[in-house]
Computed example of a mutant assay.
Amino acid sequence: MDRLLVRLLRGQDLGALVFPAGGLSTEQRIDALVTYPITALGCTPSYALFLAEQAAKRGIDLAKQTKIRLTWHTGEPGASIPATKAKIEAAFGAKSYDCLGLTEIAAWGFDCDARSGLAHVHEDHCFPEVLDERDQPVRPGETGELVFTSLYRKAMPLLRYRTRDVVRLADRACPCGRTLLALDGGVLGRIDDMKKIRGIIVYPRRIEELVRPHDGVDEFQIVLRRHEGLDDILVRIDPSPGLNPGERAALCAKLDDALRVGLGIRVTVEATEPGSLPRWDHKARRVRDERTEVPF
């Protein structure tokens, strides 16, 4: 069963009225948020930002004109990236939470009210392991691949299922007092998403961590290409409509410096016309690999 459906059913079990919006357009969803006393919103982080952007175009301030108290997000690592989480919380005037999960395992983790940057694992639902490249357990503070064994699924039990998610085993306790296994920063990336550019390993999440803190970026796209015989990263940004050409150029220069320092390689940054980059109502597909031959 899809994990979003599971969460809806559990919401009903708690006595919460569930407002299904899967068949609605973005405009209808905004109208529903404004019209009805909806207090919680669940969607991908990208779609939450898109909802806010579209509402603003209609002169609607979701933080002031809705009753949203909290938002929870899945499908992407955005809600565990501080800058992305901050943008969502500012747009909705609500607390934002990362709900981590896999279709094969269901919801397996969450962040808590302590806001410590740690994701707790539901160890009563699944047994977690974090393994290195030699399939050995990593030590606290080290990164590895997240591996799960399901503890309650009867129709499709999984034994040591390799998720392909890269995580860091926490080396600190959460102030909330929970003793569940914790992951620092949630899901840091996917092994499938790992790219090698001029000898440097790059994850799309790291680029988002460096781009999102900058005001004036409504959306962005990552293009991997061959440029003058070398692998190159092109980051296209969709600037806020209110920025003039000079401000857009200054924003690109700031991002160029931030990405160069944060990634350890030089990156090309260019601004598109406002609103020209695609938006998504499900998982975002921000990465385009235009190289015909790649290292791996």
Score class of each variant (00 low, 15 high):
Ser116Asp: 13
Asp215Trp: 12
Ala94Val: 01
Gly186Arg: 03
Met156Phe: 13
Phe50Met: 14
Ser240Thr: 03
Arg291Lys: 10
Arg7Gly: 12
Phe110Ile: 15
Arg168Lys: 10
Lys67Thr: 13
Ala284Met: 02
Cys174Arg: 03
Gly141His: 00
Arg162Asp: 03
Arg164Gly: 13
Thr74Asp: 12
Asp165Pro: 04
Ala119Arg: 02
Asp256Leu: 15
Gln136Cys: 02
Gly216Phe: 07
Asp98Ile: 09
Arg164Ala: 12
Leu146Trp: 03
Ala56Arg: 08
Pro241Tyr: 04
Ser25Trp: 10
Asp124Gly: 03
Ala253Gln: 04
Ser80Pro: 02
Leu49Ser: 05
Tyr36Phe: 15
Ala250His: 10
Leu169Lys: 05
Gly101Asn: 08
Asp231Ser: 07
Gly275Ile: 09
Gly229Met: 05
Glu273Gln: 09
Pro128Ala: 11
Leu230Asp: 14
Leu131Arg: 05
His227Phe: 13
Leu251Val: 04
Pro175Arg: 08
Val294Trp: 10
Ile201His: 14
Ile197Trp: 01
Ser150Pro: 03
Arg3Ser: 15
Val287Tyr: 14
Arg153Cys: 11
Pro157Leu: 06
Leu188Met: 09
Cys176Val: 02
Cys43Val: 13
Asp61Phe: 01
Cys126Gly: 09
Ile38Gly: 01
Ala114Gly: 13
Met1Gly: 14
Gly75Thr: 05
Arg206Asn: 11
Val294Cys: 07
Phe19Ala: 13
Gln12Tyr: 12
Pro45Val: 04
Ala83Met: 12
Ile30Met: 09
Leu169Met: 00
Ala55Leu: 10
Gly242Ala: 11
Leu259Val: 06
Pro45Gly: 00
Pro82Ser: 01
Asp171Glu: 08
Thr26Gln: 10
Cys174Thr: 03
Leu159Asp: 00
Glu104Cys: 01
Val138Lys: 12
Asp124Ile: 06
Arg29Glu: 15
Ile60Met: 10
Ala55Cys: 12
Arg236Ser: 05
Trp280Met: 07
Thr179Val: 06
Arg178Phe: 00
Gly141Trp: 00
Ala91Asp: 11
Leu146Lys: 04
Lys85Gln: 12
Ala79Phe: 06
Arg260Ile: 14
Pro213Ser: 13
Ser96Thr: 12
Glu290Ile: 13
Pro245Thr: 07
Arg279Ser: 15
Leu118Lys: 11
Gly109Phe: 01
Thr268Asn: 10
Pro37Arg: 02
Asp281Lys: 15
Asp184Val: 03
Arg225Leu: 01
Lys87Ser: 06
Tyr97Phe: 08
Asp184His: 06
Leu49Met: 09
Lys87Thr: 04
Leu259Gly: 06
Leu102Gln: 07
Leu131Pro: 06
Val261Met: 15
Phe19Ser: 12
Arg190His: 00
Gly264Arg: 00
Thr163Gln: 10
Arg260Gln: 14
Pro239Trp: 11
Ile68Asp: 06
Leu277Met: 03
Gly22Val: 14
Ala284Arg: 00
Ala52Trp: 08
Asp2Ser: 14
Pro20Leu: 09
Cys99Trp: 03
Gly275Arg: 12
Ser240Val: 07
Gly11Met: 04
Phe19Glu: 11
Lys196Tyr: 13
Ile233Ala: 02
